[in-house]
Design a protein around this nucleic acid. Structure first.
Lengths: 180, 180
DNA sequence: TATTGTTATACTCTATAACTATA
DNA sequence: TATAGTTATAGAGTATAACAATA
């Protein structure tokens, strides 16, 4: 699947009245902003040694201590084979540990270490700081309005709450089909 | 550069008042929406045989007929070596032609064919249709408000109008630095 | 010697599918 | 026979640098 961006705003064609009345495109802006915000977010939390999806996984485990890799794979939409590498890296960094499941020795349960929790908290603070900075020009009511509008687009477009499509295996993703 | 997505919304930590008051994150929503919208847009215009960046290039050339590859490379922020493949594909599809520059035989000027123009117009209609569908739940004033808010975020975050960061070479991109 | 376009190389990312050890 | 995790392999995409033709 090509994850290539939308190519530009959509100026009116003279005469035809199909397009937006102002020649600007919500889709293009979202595509631009989404990419830039993702990159900047990655830069911001890089100070903690975490990549975004490692942060996401660590947070998910912290909220469901002792889950198996399989469970996490399902929950985050990350293919099992991909998850292995992420867990490897987090374990090598001392952020989490694998234990063998007491009842099923095929399974590994995942546990956040003390260092993992500290790092997670620190990454959380950085993330919230970035959110504040990103919205620094917006009055609180404006931010509320923006959140509402984005939420409506998100539900229209078929985005699952809290699950990022970038972590999901894209090819067989139905939400990625012709149109929602 | 990792273009990995932001990992999730940001629930309040009890006590500390650094985060958003509602536990939802504009950054995360933008990251989610941007990716999904990009994918859907690609699906929508795929009917024309164009990929998003081919669409972008074809549009740019149509608006600056006879430009050289170098000029286009600069303008869109696509590395010259990458542009070659895109132009190759567009030329093979009959959408544009390379001519040798009359004054400098190193340079190739780019020209949209008749078929290219027809296809471009068709892709444009599809794109505008997608924009309409995307914003179908929004009243016109709401859409105007959304555009205004997104524009303000975009300028704050350092997004160049009409230039998509996904086309730009990410590594050496200053707008991708620690923070804007 | 510098520049345009091209090609070659290397590197990252990811998905598919084989493989192991348990069940 | 089926499942959890792992490893291996192959493909897409892209950036870097070498290259040929021209200036």
């Amino acid at each position: 699947m090509s994850t290539a961006p939308a190519p530009g705003p959509l100026p009116d064609e003279q005469g035809s009245r199909h397009g937006p009345p102002d020649g600007r495109a919500v889709g293009f802006l979202l595509s631009q902003l989404g990419l830039v915000v993702s990159r900047q977010f990655a830069e911001v939390i890089a100070a903690t040694g975490l990549e975004p999806r490692e942060f996401a996984l660590l947070r998910a485990i912290a909220g469901a201590e002792g889950s198996t890799q399989n469970a996490m794979s399902d929950r985050l939409g990350i293919p099992a084979s991909t998850l292995v590498a992420v867990v490897d890296h987090l374990e090598a960094g001392g952020f989490l540990e694998r234990h063998t499941h007491p009842l099923d020795r095929r399974s590994r349960t995942l546990h956040v270490t003390e260092q993992g929790r500290a790092t997670l908290a620190s990454a959380m603070r950085l993330a919230m700081g970035y959110e504040q900075q990103l919205c620094g020009d917006l009055a609180p009511e404006e931010r509320a309005v923006l959140l509402d509008l984005l939420d409506r687009l998100a539900s229209r477009v078929g985005v699952t709450e809290g699950v990022h499509p970038g972590l999901t295996s894209g090819a067989s993703d139905p939400s990625c089909g012709p149109l929602a």
